[in-house]
Write a protein that binds this DNA or RNA. Sequence first.
DNA 1: TAATTTAATGCAACTGAGTTGCAAATATAA
DNA 2: TTATATTTGCAACTCAGTTGCATTAAATTA
Lengths: 126, 126
Amino acid sequence: MGIIRRTKSVEMLLDEFQKDSGAISVIELIKRVNSKINKTTVYRVLDNLEDDGILHSFLDKNGIKWYAKCYDCSTAGHSDAHPHFQCINCGKVDCLTLEVNIPKIPDREVMVAQVLIQGKCKACFV
Amino acid sequence: MGIIRRTKSVEMLLDEFQKDSGAISVIELIKRVNSKINKTTVYRVLDNLEDDGILHSFLDKNGIKWYAKCYDCSTAGHSDAHPHFQCINCGKVDCLTLEVNIPKIPDREVMVAQVLIQGKCKACFV
DNA sequence: TAATTTAATGCAACTGAGTTGCAAATATAA
DNA sequence: TTATATTTGCAACTCAGTTGCATTAAATTA
């Protein structure tokens, strides 16, 4: 449906993505804005921001929902085919700008590919 | 922990993977063996079979757990780096034998990559 | 600026996949 | 056949995410 009114909840949530460059899990967001915004509202605002092409979402290894800022998306559609990287040590998740080449598959029409890469991030990889 | 005893539950579940070449969701399995095996047992047996390198698991687009037969795995470790293909029309999920090349990423150590490809399968792609 | 409209919010209760603890059942070794 | 250790069923639980509905508050209009 998308965002229509510029409410406090919208401002506050967008602000979190302003100061955090990586992806943020909904659980983490709910914790951060707890006592300010109800969790139902958090889910709904994020959903709207995704419809508007401002955020995109994906599930991590444990089926938990994460959101991150979009760069090349719009209400017309998401081009968030980029892979996501989750550190198995600190849990941080980032969008990777690199492209993963998905080969053509015989007898099948490929439409979207989700790539979740796990490993150690810069801070944890010594 | 792995399977130690050859019980009816183990036979019955392995049988499902014998007659079904693709992946099967736990939800579907529970439905199929319902009234024969308790859902807790289904989860536990599948978990054991994964430990034994007989099945491997992954989450689909909706965070639902699926299992499929392993080919090159063992108790020593899973080599299930192959991508999984989910048909957006009929919902069927298959393991793809092709390899997806994950490039090296600067400052990060890549350990595992999960690739879930969505599109239309042979039957649904006309 | 006040009144009106309609989107956004909070709350409580719910859903559903997956988990846990424990007593009872059953496969396997002795 | 008996002993013992694994497996199972059951019921109750967890927890991320959803739904319905009454209330609140943006934004529009008069």
